[in-house]
């Protein structure tokens, strides 16, 4: 695989083994095994997999929240240990965990300061981010008063606040109602059209099929296959068939998720 310039994310032979101790006995659990792939700049890349296949582990490794047992990762050519790499990413977790005691404006100010936004620019960026997610009227309310949908919007605002070139969404459509689903889809497509690289995980094949340029299929912690849009766009339901084939053919050969 060519890992030269033009890649937003490079995952190079990454393995993650979780170590835990119970009653003095060491337990090793494999999160992902020998993961190798690259996401090109400007691409909309979906990571598909069943529950427990390693999607969240992969995302946490890319964000530097987990450390790889083997292998290396880089963002736009910067190793993850460099601060530059982390200034280029916006992240929306599956359930946005935010400081409930802060107001929407205060939390965006905090994240903006931590993302090195200059104080001359920050107020305007907060206004823009709140306007994008339709929360201008609620900017001075504490997040503990917000509904789940509103918290999701604040989560999107904080991911976009510093205008990062790479956006990583972990299961962004899980638990959304049809209206929220449509809005999230529109936001993802709009961001990609503005030149952002978008990497997201999901187990909704239909959503991935509609919007992604490429899809990676994770099975039991291994990247079983990477598909191009051309491989599924000719026929409705093709991605689902390809996904099922991949899962079924790989399950027999994959290393068990835990030992």
């Amino acid at each position: 695989m060519n890992f030269n310039t033009g890649n937003a994310i490079v995952v190079d032979h990454v393995t993650k083994v979780y170590r835990s101790r119970h009653l003095g006995r060491l337990r090793l659990t494999v999160g992902v095994t020998d993961l190798t792939f690259a996401v090109r700049e400007g691409e909309l890349f979906g990571l598909l997999g069943l529950n427990g296949s390693g999607k969240t582990t992969t995302i946490k490794l890319i964000l530097g929240l987990l450390f790889p047992t083997h292998g290396a990762l880089s963002l736009f050519g910067h190793p993850l240990s460099h601060r530059e790499a982390r200034s280029l990413v916006g992240y929306l977790p599956e359930i946005p965990s935010l400081y409930r005691y802060l107001t929407a404006e205060e939390i965006l100010r905090l994240y903006g300061e931590l993302s090195e936004l200059p104080s001359t620019v920050l107020p305007r960026r907060i206004d823009e981010a709140l306007a994008l997610v339709h929360l201008e009227e609620h900017r001075r309310r504490r997040l503990q008063e917000f509904s789940k949908g509103m918290l999701q919007r604040v989560g999107i605002a904080q991911a976009l606040l510093h205008d990062p070139p790479l956006l990583i969404f972990d299961e962004p459509i899980t638990g959304l109602d049809p209206l929220g689903l449509k809005e999230m889809r529109q936001i993802i497509v709009m961001l990609n059209q503005r030149g952002k690289t978008v990497f997201f995980s999901s187990h909704s094949i239909s959503e991935v099929e509609r919007i992604c340029h490429r899809v990676g299929i994770l099975v039991r912690g291994r990247l079983a296959r990477i598909l191009d849009q051309a491989e599924w766009s000719q026929r409705e339901g093709a991605l689902e068939a390809l996904f099922m084939d991949t899962v079924q053919s790989t399950v027999g050969t994959a290393t068990p998720a835990s030992r």
Partner: peptide
């Protein structure tokens, strides 16, 4: 436990 730490540590700070 609340996972609020993730959205802080993914940013460019030591």
């Amino acid at each position: 436990e609340a996972r609020t730490i993730a959205l802080v540590l993914i940013r460019p700070l030591h």
